[in-house]
Design a binder for these strands. Sequence first.
DNA 1: TCCACACGTTAGATAATCCTAACTTTCTAA
DNA 2: TTAGAAAGTTAGGATTATCTAACGTGTGGA
Lengths: 153, 153
Amino acid sequence: MDSSNVTPGLQEYLTSIYRLKKSGKKEIRIRDLAKERNVRLPSVTGAMKKLAKMNLVRYNRYGSVDLTEDGERIAEVLDRIERDFYLFLVDFLGVPEEKAREEACRVEHGINMDTAKRLVALMDYLSKCLPEEERRKIKEYIERRIEESQCNS
Amino acid sequence: MDSSNVTPGLQEYLTSIYRLKKSGKKEIRIRDLAKERNVRLPSVTGAMKKLAKMNLVRYNRYGSVDLTEDGERIAEVLDRIERDFYLFLVDFLGVPEEKAREEACRVEHGINMDTAKRLVALMDYLSKCLPEEERRKIKEYIERRIEESQCNS
DNA sequence: TCCACACGTTAGATAATCCTAACTTTCTAA
DNA sequence: TTAGAAAGTTAGGATTATCTAACGTGTGGA
């Protein structure tokens, strides 16, 4: 079972569970996921049924929800991709945090682990092998270009 | 009418029409779009009806298809975003072309024009302000990191 | 104890996107 | 000029993911 068999919608539920766990919540309930994903309760119930059938979550009627080992493995990868892309957007491209969060979330299901690793490698290189001075120049250059393009439209 | 009102599926039809036009095709038919998008004819018919209702394409039963001004404007933006992201993946991250094409296509609907512009600005900076030597190092660094990570898994 | 209310589920609807099967229109070549 | 092939449409159905409305569950406080 790898993440490509799981539809984007279900992937989002996996990462939501993963993050709630990481944030220290001991018991994750349908209600928590509904709030996290901004959907209604029945949508969550339906998704959990499907994920349980795929053995990616443990779930009992009227009970709590948890990731199986397979589910955790997939969620970890998806979470990592989204975080990497988010950092790239914010740290290197200067996209405002709020917008970057949304975009990283939408992009999470479109790029794969190999690409994410390449992105992280690029960021590492720019961070480690370029002097701080140079990184500042990059960011200034980007902002200048954005301002210019706004004048033209 | 801006692209955010148009569903991802319909956006894909717009960019397909746009590219066929740019490639020099004088008359675009339902069949051409079906081949381009790898879907069956009825899917295209349905999409064209919706796009025609939104005034983004001109379309007559059993006839040919063309973009309206509004449709062209949206398609242009989407096409630009996808191309920019594709070039970034291939030129800077070294993602294989085939994979990059798919990913750029999926990401096209997730990132917005401002982010795409920032990406292009970053690429321009790296191209213009770094010596060729340095760019080669970046690419080597990325490849090395990818190889390392493959050993660890 | 017991019931109110928050939590959860089921049933049924809607929307987007795709499909197949069957039909209609248009084009082309003998 | 006409019949068959190619192109296009319509009808109807599947899937994914969402919603609302109505019904079931379970538990903490009076």
